[in-house]
Amino acid sequence: MNAATRPIETPLRGFLREFTQDQVAVVAFVVLALIVLLALLAPWITPQDPYDLSNLVLMDARRPPGHVGSKGFTHWLGTDAQGRDLYSAILYGLRISLQVGLMAGAIAFALGASLGTLAGFAGGRTETLIMRIIDLQLSFPAILLALVLAALLGQGKWPLIAALVTAQYAYFARTAHGAASSERSKDYVEAALSTPLSSARVAFRHVLPNCMPPLIVVATVQVANSIALEATLSFLGLGMPVSEPSLGMLIANGFQYMLSGRYWISIYPGIALIVLIVAINLVGDQIRDQLNPRLKR
């Protein structure tokens, strides 16, 4: 007696097959991949390291796109108020955005998913305690929380990530709690527990993997949020130090020049940021639709 004789399609392969059927998602994914690639290769494909203050020549500050700088190379996107080549600054800024966004997202995911699964699985007082803390935290606006923490922790990449994680882990926790509670009452969990297998093992090896679909959906949204939040913090002067501007700070720095016609200092970093966030959101949308069982045709 044989099972279906088609080649085994793992959940992953089925997922990828469906994903590639949506053109918008594929385009968004390609754009995203391109951005990531550019960001990774930044040190090699940029003419200038914008974080090295010794590279900057004030003479070249606020030059329009196409201007040939004193170091001999063309500033394709112009320069900013400190003389940074905007093209280089944008690519390095994207590096920071991606690093911070992904790191914060990953840590928030791990922390939030574990807490939420624990709460949903254990039930009783543990659940009540954890979820009340989460609820409390969710009642604060993320921006406010991140602002306060960033101000307290000072500037730098890791304080920034810490602030973002604190602002965001609660979303993961709440989603994980809901999914874990619902999985907890299913037969396969009971079957595993009745072998008997330890609660910890069942919670993390059986329940958590089955909570992944909604968690992945939250993750895609939260990565985009992290990036936007980081940009906001940098725009407000918190987060990354002035000498290592991320996209947010570039936009902030160039703001005052918008009206005087030097649009490129704000606009190009702004476009880069928007493209990144939109690409992530479109990919996230597709993942969300695919993982939603109700929408399955």
Binding site: D187, Y188, A191, A192, T195, P209, N210
Partner: peptide
């Protein structure tokens, strides 16, 4: 471990992943 259980719903009693 000497007594084991077989459940009613064969799909729900197996971890789908």
């Amino acid at each position: 471990t000497r007594v084991q259980m077989v459940f009613q719903d064969p799909f729900a009693s197996l971890n789908p992943r």
